[in-house]
Amino acid sequence: MGDLLLLAQDSSGFFPIFLQTLVKGLALGSIYAIMGIGFVIVFKGTQVLNFASGGMAMAGALFMSIMINDGGLPFMPWSNPLAPAAGTDPSIPRWLINLFFALIFAAIMGMILERVAIRPMVGQPLFSMAVITLGLETAIGPFNRDATSQAARTLGVPWKLEQWKLFDAGIPKSYVAAMIAAAVCFGAVNFFFRSRFGVAMRAVAFDQEAAQAQGINVGRVFSIAWGLGAALVTVAAIFYGMGPFPPQGTVSQEIHPILAFRVLPVIILGGLDSIPGALYGGLMIASAEVFAGQYLSQWTKILGAGYSTIVPYLVMLIVLLVRPYGLFGTEEIRRV
């Protein structure tokens, strides 16, 4: 469970395997980075470490699956006009539009959760807020588990399992898509932080009260942060669901609920408040995970099946021993 499949079986030779592993690491790293950016935006905007990311991401991915696979939501009088014919995968434009609606859904969900559960807690200790999100995660989880319990929730991957050939190495299109998604998200977030709202968010991250005194609508910044954060983690969950990632084109009952917890080492490494840090952290952690999974695989019986999934946590523990604030995080100034 949770272990990335060894893709290199069909090709041989040192270089193709290395190339495939590298691409796999970059692809997984892109997904970790997108999710990490989702964490970081919420933390910058509201000073909350969002443990509910996993639940929200999975709910967003499930929404996508329901839209594409079931042809519309239950309890709704109309069906989704952009759903593909039953049993087929959608074309890329249709898929993109559905993705867009899934992101809107996730953003609205994030905003509602923020307004209901987080807004009343403004000014409370960091820990109380984090625990609130832990409560949200616990409360959302069963609904997700229930939705996936009956049948596999396929996500409709437009490019299925197709590969490109490069120097004898198979490069799955999903990996490239994940990298493109990470580039788009990273660019969009950077662009956002140059915009009016982004500048407001940076001000709020620096000092909430001072920002309000300058006329910034802090509540709206909170809303935007949670909406953006939820949308970003949903992107990550959807791209992680596309084969040949282990869920094999579905929203997985085993892997998706803990996906967000696997990204925690990434934001530790990158620092809770650094967006480039999330990108570097994601690439480093995912590379460590994928390379360990590929090149230590002959010792699988000693290390245990699925050992590569705990590599991120081990890396995190070692990094924290050396640098308690991660590699890119700003050290907290402690005052009495």
């Binding site: 470490l49 960091l126 820990f127 803990i258 530790i268 991120p312 946590y313 995190m316 523990l317 308690p324």
Partner: peptide, 14 residues
Amino acid sequence: GLYLAIVTVGLTFI
């Protein structure tokens, strides 16, 4: 603070 919470999440999975 939060860093400790995250480290201990890691412990659970390990």
